[in-house]
Design a binder for these strands. Structure first.
Lengths: 255, 255
DNA sequence: GCGGGCAACTGGTTGAACCAGTATCTTCCT
DNA sequence: AGGAAGATACTGGTTCAACCAGTTGCCCGC
């Protein structure tokens, strides 16, 4: 089935159903601080009335919240808002960065995320260098070529989408379930960002060279070179983002 | 409320309800390969009969599977098993390592996890060195002292639990939401392992020294020293585990 | 042969009733 | 008066029986 990347297409936004909508709203209220950790939610029967639905549908929403560690549910005692800062997982990133209460906290999370992403990609590229198959390399080269072409055309939106696909293929090439599972929430976050702000991708003159350098190192199974090439690129480009974000931090005086 | 660590106590295993039981069973069937990616599940009405329950309860289980990216549900088309290897998240680790189909794959995941954990903890300790408050340091020192005491007593079970608490406090001291959210699934996995095999903790003579070294570096806000101390320790102790696991890989000839 | 519509799936939603834990208040016995 | 036992009024957990709403494909009529 041709290794569907699932990055392109699939723009058929699934029609949000009732339970999903309620889940997203409660998630928003928790992440925004409107509902605080330790606070008790209204009873299921009341919540169902509030959301103009029935208990069964509302309970489906609660199951999602529970699975995301956003609430704890105990028979006979009600539903309690959990401390997502301690109990959450990376899957919360997109929602939190969009709906978190404090701008400063969101910016700080973004700053931390940049570094974590760089370290994660270093692990990925190191593994890709030692484990990639010829097919992996061929696919990566193909995607890289598309990227270079897009770069020459100056098509930022295409580059952004292509970068996502390239990173995804790189994670595939690492052949590591833990890395894939760690990368997934970050990639998903990246994808959602690009859906909303395709122009956010940082145009850097060194991008084609970076792609070429990583590809050469991966082809040569040279982990160290792959890591250092990638690190050098991110240290430079992330610096731009960090500068922008820290400036934003200073100018903002929220709360 | 005294910063409950939520690591000790809480041994009151929540009585698993119907939906949770069904969720866990379907998760097991998917992770074990009994239900393969792309395969269609039976209709909700049939599944409800199979599990001797009603549709609403079964749907609550499906919402959890859906939220864990183990299935995709489409109105009018049924429920399809997703490819957890590509779509999964770190939260699957405990279940997969327990119920994955292939022993070789499970061991390989464990091997990759060891390295990813080491890298993650390096990030954590680096941040802890630069961001820890005096309260963080005090708590870490307190926990470290308990660990040394337990080490002298040779109480492996206590050390294992304490190590978990210490790592958890270290993540707190890093004051980074992305790191906390990345660490949570790994810590949770560690906790579950210890619940089942408390003796698995590797007793290493260098442990007290490692604790002391990290504490000193964190107190002195010396990121580099903290990272190198931690890396040196893990490179040595993980080596033991890697050896054991690779030996297990060779002796096993599954499938 | 082709097109439209009907029929038979699928999941999504609804409402009501009852089961089962938990906490609290009340009552009755000591 | 004090304390224990039980009634009560919450909470979530489970069940049932409909009906609504997308999808698919068959089948009939043109």
């Amino acid at each position: 089935m041709g290794q569907t990347i699932a990055s392109d297409g699939d723009s058929v936004s699934s029609s949000p159903n009732r339970a999903e909508t309620i889940y997203l709203d409660l998630q928003r209220r928790i992440l925004s601080g409107e509902l605080k950790a330790g606070q008790r939610l209204a009873a299921e029967r009341e919540l169902a009335v509030e959301y103009a639905t029935n208990r069964n549908t509302l309970r489906e929403a609660l199951r999602k919240l529970e699975h995301a560690n956003l609430v704890t549910v105990r028979h006979g005692q009600g539903v309690t808002v959990a401390d997502f800062r301690r109990k959450g997982s990376l899957a919360l990133l997109p929602a939190f960065l969009e709906q978190g209460a404090s701008v400063a906290e969101r910016v700080n999370v973004l700053l931390d995320l940049l570094e974590a992403r760089a370290r994660m990609l270093e692990m990925v590229v190191a593994r890709a260098a030692t484990r990639s198959t010829p097919e992996d390399v061929a696919r990566l080269k193909e995607l890289a070529a598309e990227q270079v072409a897009g770069f020459d055309r100056g098509d930022l939106a295409a580059i952004a989408r292509g970068d996502l696909a390239w990173v995804d293929a790189l994670v595939d090439a690492a052949h590591s379930l833990p890395l894939r599972w760690t990368a997934n929430p970050v990639i998903e976050f990246y994808r959602k960002i690009l859906d909303r702000f395709p122009m956010i991708w940082i145009s850097d003159a060194g991008y084609p060279g970076y792609l070429r350098g990583v590809m050469e190192a991966v082809s040569a199974s040279d982990s160290a070179a792959a890591v250092s090439t990638m690190r050098a690129f991110f240290e430079r480009t992330d610096q731009v983002l960090v500068g922008t974000l820290e400036q934003l931090l200073e100018s903002e005086t929220p709360q």
